[in-house]
Design a protein around this nucleic acid. Structure first.
Lengths: 144, 144
DNA sequence: AACTACTTGCAATCGTATTGCACGTGCATT
DNA sequence: AATGCACGTGCAATACGATTGCAAGTAGTT
């Protein structure tokens, strides 16, 4: 069994384990997001899948559906576009969202796994409320 | 001069200082947002201003325009609706990268002036690009 | 292989955000 | 106070992302 086949089986398994059918559209979407190292907007996913003859509405339904069952995370980074990101096995559902960097110029998104606030800042923030997500915006290196 | 007149003059002055004309629509919008203690979505502002005969598109243009010159802040709280909040005098326009806490439930925005990232996190982030804004999302104490 | 509930493609629809254009107006100047 | 003009506004058209209804197709069970 080739590496590709193994990966395919893993994808199928993940989808079925989530309680959904392993359709070509879902498989392609999840593969794509597993291989991407940053969240992708629907438009990008749809464009790619269009070449396989998959409808844009189907992509929408699957992205949202897979987000609902915990295969993906649906993120809004402040530019009015939903982005979808694969949730890896080792993450525990939606609670373990990591920070993102959004370039306000080109829209590029970078995942920041190990960014956190200083201890005193955490205390200040906890006085205000319960943090669920940290988002950093700015100009990426390509854009400045 | 009544208190209301004083407030009116302040609003006009703020608009002109920002390089814009003090038109009735802008005045009404800025007054409304100055009096509100939380960000308002366009729909709410437009609905109120409609009774004064102001067009919805004008409200949009003015909200965006005033956000561009630093009179307002345009925020996205994760529900795909732009919200606008007045930037008070003592804040320093759009350049100052002071973090905000956004309650995803009620839309309340809290300024976190003295919140910052750990040194190592800053290094990680600066490798990606130039930070202009830090946004912390979560549930505020009133909402949980 | 057959059956059925779930999926998909297609097109219509919806709601928010944006834009073109002709008309109106704030405000600097005279 | 009157004038000029760049800027602002109203109206309608439009763009665009997101969603949905429905008939036809298919994954996975029996």
């Amino acid at each position: 069994m080739t590496k590709k086949d193994e990966s395919l089986e893993l994808v199928k398994r993940a989808i079925r384990d989530a309680g959904l059918r392993a359709t070509p559209a879902r498989i392609a979407i999840l593969q794509m997001l597993w291989e991407s190292n940053s969240p992708l907007p629907h438009s990008v996913v749809a464009e790619k899948l269009a070449s396989l003859g998959v409808d844009s509405a189907t992509v929408f339904r699957n992205l949202n559906g897979m987000a609902q069952v915990g295969l993906l995370r649906r993120a809004e980074l402040g530019d009015h576009v939903w982005r979808f990101e694969a949730i890896r096995d080792h993450e525990h559902g939606r609670d373990s969202a990591h920070p993102h960097f959004l370039c306000v110029d080109c829209g590029e998104v970078t995942c920041l796994d190990d960014v956190q606030l200083t201890a005193s800042s955490q205390r200040v923030t906890e006085r205000v409320g319960e943090i669920t997500e940290i988002l950093v915006r700015g100009h990426c290196n390509q854009c400045r």
